[in-house]
């Protein structure tokens, strides 16, 4: 098995799965019925994407591996998502600011992946990029509304951005697997993605009257070494409970 490719697929799938799980936590408690449905829709898009990445990863791994075993039977240190997507939802502004930062990156990444030298990755990305394009637009529009809305919404959006900004850069900082993917023509040069990402976000935050904070601690190693925040364990505990308590349960 090509372990680099496997790890690369986990990075893609785990980001989608964990953010999807987080967004689905809004089901039933979002500020408006319409937002409830929108966030759940986005979450379900992401779960669908995760499933496709995991199908490919499971084929590579062979044996008894399936998308379900990859999602439900790995422990936190084996997950390769970035720390950003596992952070708690917080208030609505926290969720939206996390989403606009991640989705802007995710859209640029998937646009580049449609050109991947790996045709399977290119095909999955081509399908996902339409969904992610909508996610990015939805979160951008909400960022503009919150930033330019009332004094309270502006303050909450600015605080959300301040709180989360340190986590923004992990996805854009190449790890060993990203270097491998770039050399193999499978994934993009993250430095190039980063400059487009920064330009896009600068424009959005400027339009939303939000100040970009100075990044503090940015040396995060969740996607490259599985060093996560404490939050991921709680997500997995809830998400994996049934498969752990009743192995091979189906419904």
């Amino acid at each position: 098995m090509n372990n680099n490719l496997y790890q690369y697929l986990l990075q893609l799938g785990d980001n989608a799965l964990i953010l999807g799980q987080r967004l689905c936590e809004w089901t039933g408690v979002a500020p408006e019925l319409e937002i409830d449905l929108a966030l759940s829709n986005i979450g379900l898009d992401l779960l669908g994407q995760a499933n496709q990445w995991y199908e490919y990863a499971a084929e590579l791994k062979g044996g008894d591996a399936t998308p379900d075993t990859i999602a439900f039977l790995r422990d936190a240190h084996e997950y390769r998502n970035v720390q950003l997507v596992e952070l708690p939802n917080g208030n609505f502004a926290d969720t939206i600011l996390r989403a606009v930062i991640f989705d802007t990156f995710n859209l640029l990444l998937h646009e580049a992946l449609t050109q991947s030298s790996d045709q399977r990755i290119g095909a999955i990305a081509a399908r996902a990029v339409k969904e992610i394009g909508y996610h990015a637009r939805y979160c951008k529009n909400w960022t503009l509304r919150l930033g330019g809305g009332t004094e309270e919404s502006h303050q909450k959006a600015q605080k959300a951005l301040n709180d989360i900004w340190d986590y923004a850069f992990e996805a854009l900082t190449p790890g060993p697997v990203d270097h491998w993917a770039k050399e193999a023509g499978i994934g993009p040069d993250l430095e190039q993605v980063k400059s487009k990402w920064e330009a896009t976000l600068q424009q959005v935050f400027h339009q939303a009257s939000l100040q970009i904070p100075k990044p503090g601690f940015v040396d995060r190693k969740a996607k490259s070494e599985g060093i996560h925040t404490e939050h991921l364990g709680y997500i997995l505990a809830e998400m994996q409970f049934l498969q752990r308590a009743y192995p091979n349960l189906q419904w």
């Binding site: 408006e32 019925l33 319409e34 449905l37 929108a38 829709n41 909508y134 939805y138 529009n141 509304r145």
Partner: peptide, 20 residues
Amino acid sequence: SLHAADAQMAIENARDVYTR
């Protein structure tokens, strides 16, 4: 019908509520 603050949001909400 649905609630939305502006026309753009109404289109987005309609997409999420009625075309899923």
